[in-house]
Design a protein around this nucleic acid. Structure first.
Lengths: 307, 307
DNA sequence: TCTGTCCATGCGGTCTCCGCATCAATCGGC
DNA sequence: GCCGATTGATGCGGAGACCGCATGGACAGA
């Protein structure tokens, strides 16, 4: 016993109109078609649903129950189709973004806010982690795209430069170097250096910068999170160098920041997508919002600029 | 954009198995059929739902959403069909019984109790009222059938005798007639008579009985409900005559009941149904339960007997 | 390189489903 | 009380959907 949608549609229309002819007009099909469809349905469920003499149509008890049920099913179908449609149009769904903690905390909030006023039915998921984890999220499909640094670009990802994020010297306010207008990497190399963990993309860049000025890259201490580095600097244990975007994550403290030169080091944050993939419409919309921000030259924290 | 159940079924099977071949085996159809059905669905919704290379099938974002929705729709359909089936088998639904208050309060409770242990998913609605209202409920289709007295049987109703309900004299215990073993209608006629309202079926029968003994039928007082008659009798205002079944409705009081003879008067309670109508299965089942009670000779209150 | 497996597709046959025309039954107006 | 109009059911022919079979092309693993 399986009733087709066609049968249920026909039956519901007839039962609601209590008339084959009227229902046929409303549906834009022939009366005979409805007559057959209803007869088929009755045969399939094995019960008479409509009591018809040549002049009137009325529902039996089973018919009333069947109407209720048919409308439930049809409504579920209609709602489902509409929901799918909305999803395909990018009006609902979820966009999952994998990013570094600094991007998630500093750059994205305003983007998400703008996006959600346009598309309130779309949920945004932030998956934050370090570079490797972030890229894996994209490769595995957990995330729709990533905003992250990219050291060795994996083959199956496509990149679009997004912002440049300049390294600055992080000092306690009473540190001698704080008196300077700008600081060189070679100057930093003479101080106890407080580095972030080895699997951070920031670490790779600081190591490289010290390499360029022929300095040893052995840190005085190493911390997993930027907030911890902030605590160490505040305690006077040394100095650090961090991209401008992560500075808000240091927390509060007696910090001063000075431009870092010789060389000037930027980390580039890219949008990373799986190559040769058509994106869900919601993802496209999110990226368009991001692009709008760039095109409008929206304010960024000092030291951060659109790429 | 309307997806057929066939397409949704096919898609859901393939998407769940992430394999056309496996899904085809499970559904017992050919692989080519599924391939086409899914392709049709994709064309209709205008989006690719499955990403297939020759070796693997995996869901796109739209595909995952579509699977969720397809399963919702299919589950609604399955549940609805099952519900209708249960209804047609008489395992669910509602049986509406129109009856006199005395039947509703005294005779039916045990029947309903027995019926509901057999069929816990079936609801029973009791529509109680006086004879005319009760019959109208059946004629209008509000009730599936009635249990009631029937004075002038309307044309479009079919009757099945159910029980006989004997009239007894209702006296206060200190009344002189209470000393007798039985009381005649002519004896009652000499006392102030407390009658029920004119639209009650009981009233019609008491009037007729007094007529048979050539007594005036003018009551000393008339009350709408049996409980009120009870109050009047208890207050010593007079005597009454009521069918045995309604005695529980008198309430508590210093009542004694005596057999009423010359003539012995029974009211007959019938099952009344709309003629030439096939009954909903639940109604049939309820009537069968009632019939079982009769066949088993279940206990009835004194003065009441199966017809 | 070769074979087995997977999905897509051409093909022919069957069955469903449609609309048109018509029929029998009934209602409403005169 | 009669007649035309309207209602739902049904015969019929045609168009299209849907099926399974067989085959093709692409890829994985030996």
């Amino acid at each position: 016993m399986d009733a087709t949608l066609r049968q249920l549609t026909a039956y519901a229309a007839v039962a609601r109109a209590t008339s084959f002819t009227a229902a046929a007009a409303r549906l834009g099909v022939s009366q005979s078609s409805l007559s057959r469809a209803v007869a088929d349905l009755e045969r399939q469920v094995g019960a008479q649903l409509l009591e018809r003499d040549t002049r009137n149509v009325q529902l039996t008890a089973a018919g009333a129950e069947a109407l209720r049920i048919a409308e439930q099913i049809l409504s579920a179908h209609r709602a489902g189709m509409k929901e799918l449609d909305r999803f395909l149009l990018g009006e609902s769904g979820t966009v999952a973004v994998a990013t570094l903690p600094s991007v998630a905390a500093v750059l994205l909030p305003q983007v998400i806010s703008g996006f959600r006023t346009d598309r309130p039915r779309v949920a945004v998921r932030l998956l934050d982690g370090l570079e490797r984890a972030v890229l894996n999220r994209v490769l595995s499909g957990d995330a729709d795209f990533a905003i992250t640094t990219v050291g060795v670009p994996p083959e199956r990802l496509e990149h679009r430069p997004l912002v440049r994020d300049r390294f600055v010297a992080v000092l306690r306010e009473d540190h001698p170097l704080a008196a300077r207008d700008e600081v060189g990497w070679a100057d930093l190399a003479l101080e106890p250096f407080l580095a972030v963990g080895r699997d951070s993309s920031v670490r790779r860049l600081t190591d490289a910068a010290f390499g360029q000025v022929d300095a040893h890259a052995v840190p005085a201490a190493e911390a997993g999170s930027v907030a911890t580095v902030g605590g160490l600097v505040a305690a006077g244990l040394g100095v650090s160098a961090l991209p401008a975007l992560v500075l808000p994550l240091l927390g509060t403290g007696p910090f001063v920041f000075r431009p870092l030169v010789d060389p000037v080091v930027d980390r580039r944050l890219d949008i990373a997508l799986r190559a040769r993939r058509t994106l869900p419409r919601v993802t496209e919309h999110f990226l368009e919002t991001l692009e709008d921000f760039r095109a409008q030259g929206r304010d960024l924290p000092p030291g951060v600029s659109w790429a």
